[in-house]
Design a protein around this nucleic acid. Structure first.
Lengths: 122, 122, 122, 122
DNA sequence: GTGGTCTAGACCACC
DNA sequence: GTGGTCTAGACCACG
């Protein structure tokens, strides 16, 4: 499968899973209205407890990345619905980071060249 | 005092305290070799458990922001000793953030103008 | 057809269907004693399981919105038979909502102007 | 305690609990920054599983009605922070209800007099 | 089969 | 003591 658990990662399992799925949905690897693995199947696949997967899916749904239909399964939301909110989050984090940069005395030029380099590697 | 606790903050208290102290040291509000308040004094001041302050100081020392002298107290380290490591951390976070940006389809121009605006407000 | 299924809707399919049919009957789109589509036909039409349609019809009948004649099919009830019970339901919900309003500190004027605006758009 | 479980209620336990707590916070019975019963204590008190209480509290926190501090407990949020969002929800529900009213042929006068009567009983 | 809820009991970090 | 996470296993409604 596309998801792997890193037991060295300090984040809770459910968050690892949901954030990995977020990424897959944002990237388009999982398209809009495509079905996600069932709670039980994914739990089996990752050899973890179904409740943990359920929690991951709950978080995912709560953030608007998927929707569930009782008795049918869970499906990816359309990316367009989620993008604006995600962008806001992104700029929020960026803001905090830039404020850190001021304290560290990192110059605009350093940051800019770093970003240019990183964005090219797309 | 210069430190205030925000009980709504999700981070543990000790981390809030130590990161606040880091900031004060980086900014120069607390100069090199200046003495830090004693564990008991700070605990009293913030009305929290001394163990928590102790933990914060431990973290601070472990990250190189201060050093302790038996019987005399704790003192801020020179900023120069810490800056390189902190810069690395900064660029690490920036890297992860920029990688997110790719998925979100945020353009270089958007990021750049945001950063320029933010850095001016110094 | 007049019925469309929204898979994002949290309500079970059968409830979506039956409530949509209720609306059609109340509005008069489906007149009194008019025949409803057969279970199989509607299931085909919506490409869902006939059991689900059956359940929707059961709910509908149980609430008095239609009656079935063995061997002939299902027919819409007369609106007059159902209206009183439905009005009771409506005022029940309204009551609960108004009680919420008190807690929220929403004033009578706010509610009234909102309702006036909404009713005009009929 | 102020909370009671109604096993005849069809809503899940955790929702009963969290919505009851919402009400208590909105009404001011539980003031801002006042501590809520601990997960274990409330579970004990209601003779249900701590996980269920945890889930109720998670929902409550996610809706902004309280905040938790690891190792310290859980505290009610200030009502002012939550009110606007709740009002929006309220008018949303009201809108749907009023739209129902049109279908039922309930007149503005009926609705208005009902509301006036209900609001007086404050 | 699916998702959702609940119980019982464990372990961890934090204070 | 507190909240948070996780496991194991059960039951229900929906399709």
């Amino acid at each position: 499968m596309l998801i792997e658990i890193d037991f060295r990662d300090k984040r809770p399992l459910y968050e690892q899973i949901s954030s990995k799925l977020e990424e897959l949905i944002l990237c388009g690897v999982i398209g809009a209205d495509e079905s996600l693995p069932s709670v039980r199947a994914l739990a089996m696949d990752l050899s973890i407890n179904p409740n943990t997967v359920q929690k991951a899916y709950d978080a995912l749904e709560q953030r608007g990345f998927c929707y569930s239909v009782a008795g049918r399964g869970r499906f990816a939301a359309s990316v367009n619905e989620v993008l604006p909110a995600r962008k806001n989050e992104f700029f929020d984090k960026l803001m905090r980071l830039i404020d850190d940069a001021k304290n560290l005395g990192v110059s605009y030029e350093e940051i800019d060249s770093f970003i240019r380099g990183r964005l090219k590697k797309a």
